[in-house]
Each structure stands twice: as C-alpha cells, then as structure tokens.
Simulated scan of single mutants.
Amino acid sequence: MYKKVMVAIDGSKTANQALTEAANIANTYDATLCIVHAVHGDTEADKKAGSEILEQAQSSAGTRKIEIRLLQSNIEYGLNGIAESIAAAAADWEADLLVVGTANRRGLERFFVGSVAEQLVTRVSCAILLVRPQSTEKESGAH
C-alpha cells in the first residue's frame, strides 16, 4: 500500500511519537522512510542543529530503507514557510503518506500561533497521518 513514507520532525516529544508511527508503517509495508526537518535560519548553527535532530532520528528509527533531508524554510513566512517546505518535499519525493505530530493547541493559542500540521492537511496531495500527543491519565481527566 505505502512505498514511500515521509515524516516531518522538529525534535519534540510528539514528533518522536510520529517518527515511531512512521517507522512502524514503513516496516510493515517494506517502504522507504524519509525523515525531514525544516530549519528557519540559514546560519551554520541552524543547519548543524537541524542535522543533529535528523541524525538522532535516523539512528532511532529502526528501519532498513531510510533517507534524511534537511529543508530550508523561508523565515519571513513563519509557520507557513515550514508547512510550505514540507509540502514541497512530500510532492518532490512523491510520498504516499506524510506523518506529522500535532501540538494539539486550542483556543487563542491555536488562533495566534497556528499549526503546521493543520496547514499541511490543506497543502499535500498524499495521505496524511496526524499523531496527537499521548496524554497521561492525569491530563485526560481519567480517575
């Protein structure tokens, strides 16, 4: 079903959960996994930090067929620039599935900050899997 699975990461806990899901799917379908990370700045420090995030993700993915890509986003466009660079990478690579963690923002925070995952839903032509943060019993209100 899936031959090319792309996952976008940012070093967060939810992105790591998305990486785990993407690696499991890639292993299940014997698909190639492409891990991408978008950086805002174009300084060497930005690129180095992004490369370190990718290398750590690559070593923890546990899949045989794997690629990594450091994406450059336009800082002037903020989150739109990140979503744009990820969507372009998914199209260029011809991904069958894009896996993305979502911050699960609500209310005013979502209105003002926005969501890269939400923007990707409207920008990519492939299937997309949104991975929500895992909540603990305390956070979900369970007793």
Score class of each variant (00 low, 15 high):
residue 123 R to I: 10
residue 132 R to F: 02
residue 68 I to L: 12
residue 142 A to G: 04
residue 99 V to C: 09
residue 89 A to M: 10
residue 113 V to D: 06
residue 20 T to P: 00
residue 79 L to P: 15
residue 10 D to K: 00
residue 35 I to N: 01
residue 34 C to F: 01
residue 20 T to C: 11
residue 49 A to C: 03
residue 95 A to Q: 03
residue 110 R to K: 05
residue 19 L to I: 05
residue 115 S to D: 12
residue 53 I to Q: 03
residue 30 D to P: 00
residue 116 V to W: 02
residue 74 N to I: 05
residue 135 S to L: 15
residue 52 E to W: 11
residue 2 Y to M: 08
residue 128 I to A: 12
residue 78 G to V: 07
residue 9 I to C: 04
residue 139 E to W: 04
residue 46 D to H: 12
residue 81 G to L: 05
residue 99 V to T: 13
residue 73 S to K: 00
residue 8 A to R: 07
residue 60 S to T: 15
residue 8 A to G: 08
residue 15 A to F: 13
residue 79 L to S: 15
residue 70 L to Q: 03
residue 20 T to E: 14
residue 76 E to G: 14
residue 134 Q to H: 12
residue 61 A to Q: 09
residue 105 R to Q: 04
residue 25 I to Y: 12
residue 131 V to D: 00
residue 46 D to A: 08
residue 103 A to C: 05
residue 68 I to G: 06
residue 97 L to P: 00
residue 77 Y to A: 15
residue 86 I to C: 00
residue 126 C to V: 13
residue 42 D to Y: 02
residue 91 A to C: 11
residue 67 E to T: 10
residue 49 A to H: 06
residue 96 D to I: 12
residue 109 E to Y: 00
residue 48 K to W: 07
residue 89 A to I: 15
residue 87 A to P: 08
residue 61 A to N: 10
residue 63 T to D: 10
residue 64 R to C: 04
residue 131 V to G: 01
residue 141 G to P: 03
residue 125 S to Y: 01
residue 37 H to D: 01
residue 55 E to W: 12
residue 127 A to K: 03
residue 98 L to C: 01
residue 132 R to V: 02
residue 118 E to V: 03
residue 30 D to C: 03
residue 32 T to P: 00
residue 76 E to I: 14
residue 38 A to F: 04
residue 130 L to Y: 07
residue 44 E to Y: 01
residue 70 L to V: 13
residue 69 R to E: 14
residue 143 H to A: 12
residue 138 K to F: 10
residue 16 N to C: 08
residue 85 S to L: 09
residue 130 L to A: 08
residue 83 A to D: 09
residue 2 Y to Q: 13
residue 70 L to M: 05
residue 18 A to G: 00
residue 80 N to E: 15
residue 34 C to M: 10
residue 115 S to I: 12
residue 2 Y to K: 08
residue 82 I to K: 02
residue 8 A to T: 07
residue 6 M to Q: 06
residue 66 I to W: 14
residue 118 E to K: 06
residue 30 D to S: 05
residue 86 I to E: 01
residue 81 G to M: 05
residue 83 A to T: 06
residue 44 E to T: 03
residue 13 K to L: 04
